[in-house]
Simulated assay, not measured.
Amino acid sequence: MPAIPPPANLPVVDYAAAPGGFPADPDPMSTVRLREGLHPTAKVGAYDAPGGKPRAFLTPNLAGVPLTVPIVERRSGWAGVLLPSANRTLAWVPPGNWETVALRDQLVVERKTFRLTWFRDDKPVQTWRATLGTWETPTPLGRTFVLGRSTLVGKVYANTDVFALGAVPDDPDAVPAGLRGAHIGLHTWYNDDTLGKNVTDGCIRITKSGQRKLLEEIIPGTSLVVVDKLPAATPGPLTGG
Score class of each variant (00 low, 15 high):
2 P>T: 13
7 P>A: 15
10 L>G: 05
13 V>D: 03
13 V>I: 15
16 A>D: 13
16 A>P: 01
17 A>G: 06
17 A>H: 11
21 G>D: 06
26 P>A: 01
30 S>P: 04
32 V>K: 12
41 T>K: 10
41 T>I: 13
45 G>R: 06
46 A>M: 08
46 A>H: 04
49 A>V: 03
53 K>D: 11
53 K>A: 14
53 K>H: 12
54 P>Y: 11
54 P>W: 10
54 P>G: 12
55 R>K: 15
57 F>Y: 15
60 P>R: 07
62 L>F: 08
63 A>V: 10
66 P>E: 02
68 T>L: 05
68 T>S: 12
70 P>W: 09
70 P>F: 07
75 R>G: 00
75 R>Q: 13
79 A>Q: 13
80 G>R: 08
81 V>Q: 06
84 P>W: 03
87 N>C: 02
91 A>N: 07
91 A>D: 08
94 P>N: 06
97 N>F: 10
97 N>C: 01
98 W>S: 08
99 E>M: 08
99 E>L: 09
100 T>L: 03
104 R>S: 14
107 L>P: 02
107 L>T: 03
109 V>D: 01
109 V>T: 07
113 T>S: 14
114 F>W: 13
117 T>I: 13
119 F>E: 03
120 R>V: 13
120 R>E: 11
123 K>Y: 06
125 V>K: 12
125 V>H: 04
125 V>C: 05
125 V>Q: 15
127 T>E: 04
129 R>W: 12
133 G>V: 08
136 E>Y: 06
140 P>F: 11
147 L>F: 07
149 R>Y: 09
150 S>K: 08
153 V>S: 12
153 V>E: 11
154 G>C: 02
156 V>I: 14
156 V>T: 14
158 A>D: 15
159 N>C: 00
163 F>D: 07
165 L>F: 06
165 L>W: 05
167 A>Y: 03
168 V>P: 01
169 P>N: 05
174 A>P: 00
177 A>P: 00
178 G>S: 11
178 G>H: 02
179 L>N: 01
181 G>L: 00
184 I>V: 15
187 H>A: 11
188 T>N: 02
188 T>L: 01
189 W>N: 08
189 W>K: 05
191 N>T: 15
198 N>R: 15
198 N>W: 13
199 V>R: 14
200 T>E: 04
202 G>S: 07
202 G>Q: 09
203 C>P: 02
203 C>L: 05
205 R>P: 00
211 Q>S: 10
217 E>P: 00
217 E>D: 09
219 I>W: 02
224 L>H: 04
227 V>M: 12
229 K>R: 15
230 L>C: 04
232 A>Q: 14
232 A>Y: 13
236 G>P: 02
240 G>L: 14
